[in-house]
């Protein structure tokens, strides 16, 4: 099993619903976030294009954050999820520094936190909160090893990219372009 997410930059309108939904679902304190939205505008008026991306932890297959964690608090979970166990985390910040995507933050309670792909939901067969709320339905989630999952199907149909492939992290969040 390899969980992954695909996000359609052609449909995303940058509304940031995915960000609030994550906050309320996962008790992310106000002033912090596990996901965020980037808007890139290129060109000169009126020859313009915009790419909008909802970003979060990429649940990298080769993740530097797991490698550098001194306690094993950052670890892989079934399905390739990268998770942090709060009561093992000493808050040293090494993983925060190690993530090329700046996907982790230091929770005010001291441990490091980040996107969990909503493990508590997917274990119950639900979609992650951000995927479920997105008004443009531009996010697809599922198991890459299952050819019928939403994410496998859409990746078969569409062109996609990952962020900073040069960093060698093998991200599991794909952007449809």
């Amino acid at each position: 099993m390899r969980y992954a997410m695909a996000i359609d930059t052609r449909k995303c309108v940058g509304c940031s619903d995915c960000v609030v939904a994550c906050q309320t679902e996962n008790n992310v304190p106000i002033g912090y976030c596990r996901d965020w939205v980037v808007e890139v505008t290129d060109g000169t008026y009126p020859q313009l294009e915009i790419e909008i991306r909802s970003e979060r932890c990429n649940h990298c297959e080769n993740s530097p954050c797991v490698r550098c964690c001194p306690t094993g608090a950052s670890h892989y979970e079934a399905g390739g999820l990268v998770l942090v166990t709060p009561h093992k985390c000493i808050g040293c910040g090494a993983c925060v520094v190690s993530c090329p995507y700046d996907a982790r933050y230091s929770h005010p309670d001291g441990y490091v936190d980040k996107c969990t792909f909503c493990m508590h939901r997917i274990q119950k067969g639900q979609q992650p909160a951000c995927v479920e709320v997105c008004p443009t339905k531009c996010m697809y989630f599922g198991d890459l090893d299952d050819p019928n999952s939403d994410v496998s199907r859409v990746l078969k149909k569409r062109k996609f990219k990952t962020l900073i492939p040069e960093a060698g992290t093998k991200p599991h969040v794909y952007y449809l372009i």
Partner: peptide, 17 residues
Amino acid sequence: VQSAMSGKKSAGNLGSA
């Protein structure tokens, strides 16, 4: 404790039930 905890890894910050 570590092995006891690993049985319920999803404790902590993983949302409401």
